[in-house]
């Protein structure tokens, strides 16, 4: 892996230089939250995201798996004809993505690029995207990425990873795509002596700041044998069954496919869905195998920390803490996992 440095005051130049060849997205403050926004002109997004919330409210997943995907449109008066959208192949750079979001791409790859069910929409968007991640010097209190196999400087899934060293960034060049970005700019230098040690210190300190201490393997061991445990009877009780935790989650990937019609015209679409909704498993007969909050909460925990591990050898949670932060009833997944851990 190559390592470079870039001065903070050179960063805007570097990103502006990308605008001729790429669409560039970067976190921008909107009201009190961060959103990934397209940069329209040089300097219209302040790249110094060291203050305020660490991560964007919505995860990166909508860049690859939008909330609504149109497969095709049809017109019943023209049988046999359908119009399919042409997916853009414009190259794009998503800048300033946090490690827990880049790590979630492995989860999505496991589902949407599998040999069995490759998803052309997802694959096309992945191919045209380069990701510049930024490590987290100051994790939030809801962050627990170190427990789920990542970390505040975990690079898995990114093309470049920036580490904030104060007046400059250390840039880890991780892929060919990342290298192309770096080669196209003159702002990069070789790291001076002592820089890598400084980085190691920052990484260590950030990791230590995350204190949740969840033992994912232990949790999995319990889940393997406790589908029917009384634990599930009560753990869901305060959940109101909204889709917040799953829609904001960078790894949740469930969807529904349906037709929306108006008169003779219609379109077939794919939209996000959530296992926390009763309709998710509602059968046409009226029967519902997950009829109460108990079965639905169990599904969410089991899918993330058992079934996904069984099928893909990784947990479907990157510890980003969004479900912790935004759950309206403060149903903290870390608490759920800890209760399991001591069971």
């Amino acid at each position: 892996m190559k390592e470079k440095t870039i001065k903070k005051n050179e960063l805007a130049n570097f990103v502006a230089g990308l605008l001729s060849d790429y669409q560039v997205f970067a976190p921008a403050k909107e009201e009190e939250s961060l959103v990934l926004k397209e940069m329209q002109a040089e300097g219209d997004i302040d790249l110094d995201i060291g203050v305020g919330p660490v991560n964007t409210k919505k995860s990166i997943k909508e860049f690859f798996f939008p909330q609504k995907e149109r497969f095709f449109s049809y017109d019943l008066t023209k049988p046999g004809e359908m119009e399919e959208p042409v997916l853009s192949d414009k190259k794009r750079v998503i800048f300033g993505v946090r490690p827990c979001d880049v790590n979630s791409i492995s989860v999505f790859d496991a589902i949407f690029t599998s040999d069995q069910y490759p998803d052309p929409y997802y694959i096309k968007r992945r191919e045209r995207t380069t990701i510049v991640a930024i490590g987290c010097n100051k994790p939030e209190t809801t962050c627990f990425c170190v427990d789920t196999g990542g970390g505040p400087f975990s690079a898995d899934g990114s093309d470049l990873l920036l580490v904030d060293l104060g007046d400059e960034y250390l840039v880890q060049v991780l892929t060919e795509k990342g290298e192309t970005l770096v080669n196209g700019s003159s702002g990069f230098s070789e790291p001076k002596s002592g820089v890598l040690q400084k980085r190691d210190g920052i990484v260590e300190e950030a990791q230590k700041a995350i204190k949740s201490d969840i033992k994912i393997k232990k949790v999995k061991g319990w889940l393997d044998n406790n589908f029917d445990a009384p634990f599930w009877d009560t753990v869901h009780e305060k959940c109101i069954g909204c889709g917040t935790c799953t829609y904001l989650c960078p790894t949740c990937h469930c969807f529904d496919i349906l037709d929306e019609t108006k008169g003779e015209k219609g379109e077939r679409i794919r939209i996000w869905d959530s296992c926390m909704y009763p309709q998710f498993t509602l059968h046409a007969s009226g029967g519902n195998p997950r009829k109460s909050g108990k079965e639905r909460m169990r599904q969410r925990v089991m899918h993330k920390f058992k079934y996904f591990v069984d099928n893909n050898e990784m947990v479907a949670c990157t510890g980003c803490g969004r479900c912790v932060k935004y759950c309206p009833v403060n149903l903290d997944i870390r608490e759920v996992l800890k209760q399991i851990q001591v069971s």
């Binding site: 889709g243 917040t244 904001l248």
Partner: peptide
């Protein structure tokens, strides 16, 4: 995002 937390 049509999560329906408001409604629920």
């Amino acid at each position: 995002i049509r999560c329906y937390a408001c409604r629920n």
